[in-house]
Amino acid sequence: MQGSSRLVGRLVLTLFVLWTVATILFLIFRLAPGSPLAAFVTPTFTAEQQESLTRQFGLDRSLFQQYLLYMSNLLQGNLGESFFYKRPVAEVVMTAFGNTIALTLGSLLVAYAFGVVMGAVFAWKRGTWIEGAGIPVVLVTRAAPEFWLGMVVLAIFAFSLGWFPGGGANSAGLTFSSEWARIFSLDFLRHLILPAFALALYLQGLPLLLMRTNMLEVMQEDFVTMARMKGLSNWAIVMRHAARNALLPVATAFALGIGQSVGGNVVVETVFSWPGLGRMLVEAVASSDYPLAQGAFLLITTVLVTMNFVADMLYSLLDPRIAHAGHR
C-alpha cells in the first residue's frame, strides 16, 4: 500500500519536472533576443517563404497561444521539422538516440562490471599497496575531462597504432537491411570499442569508489560478524552478505548513470564523431537548427528524468527495508 502511493508520488513529481523543463526550454527559445528564425532565415529567403515559416512555428500568434501549440505538439510527439535535415525532428533524433544508447550502455556495463569487482578488491585489500597505488589512479581518471581521455585514446589507438577507426559509427559506403542489423554489425562494434573504452575509463571511478566505501562500511556491520560466527565460508560472507548489501547504492548509481551519460556524452561523441544525440545537439545549436536542438534537448531531459525515477524505484525495489515497510 505504502509502496504504491510512493510510486504514484514519484511519478507525479517526474511528470511535473518534465513539464517544467519543457516550459523552461520553450521560454529560453522564444524569449531569447531576436526571432528564433533570425539565425536561420537568410536574405535569400523570399518574403513569402519567411511568412510561411513564421506561420509554421506559430510566431504570428501570442506567446501563450504559441505555448499551447508547443505543448499540444509535444504531447503528440510532434517536435517539428529540422531546418537542416528537412525531416521531422522526432525521426532524426531517434536515429541518433540508438547510437547514443549503444555507446552509453556499452561503456556503462564495462565500467560498472570493472568498478564493482575492483571496488570489492580494494576494500578487501585495504591498507595494502594494491589500494595505495590504485586509488590515486582511479582519482586521476575521475578528474580527467572525458573528451581529453577520448583524445588521448584516439591518438594512441586509432592514429599511432592504427588498431581502430578514427571516428564515426559505421564505415562509409556500407548499407544495412535495418537499423538493428546496423547496430548489431561487426563494423559498428569495431567503431564502438574506442569511444566506449574512453567513456568507461572515465565512468569506472564512481562505481569503484562507491563499492569500496560501501564494502568497508558493510564489513563492519554486526551481521557480517555474525556470518563469521556462523562459520560461513569467506565467499559466502563477502558475496552473499557484504557485496549484496554494498551493491544497493551502486545499482542506483547505474540507473542514474544512464540518465546522466546520455547528456554528458556530448563531448565524447564529438571527439569520436559518434553520430549520437549529444553531437547532434551541439551541431544543431551551432547551426541554429532550433527545432532539432529543442528536440534533442527534450529527449536527453526525458531520459535523465526517467532514469532518476527508475533509480529511485530500483532502490526501493532492491532494499527490502523500503519495499516491505510495515507489518511489525
Binding site: F223, M226, A227, M229, K230, G231, N245, D319, P320
Partner: peptide, 25 residues
C-alpha cells in the same frame, strides 16, 4: 575452528536487528 562454529557453539547477539542481514528474509 570454523567447522565447530554454530554446529557446536552458537551465539545469540545483543542486537538481533543489526545481526540479521537486512536484505534477506
Amino acid at each position: 575452528l570454523a567447522s565447530k562454529r554454530w554446529r557446536e557453539i552458537a551465539f545469540i547477539p545483543q542486537s538481533a536487528m543489526n545481526s540479521l542481514d537486512p536484505v534477506y528474509r
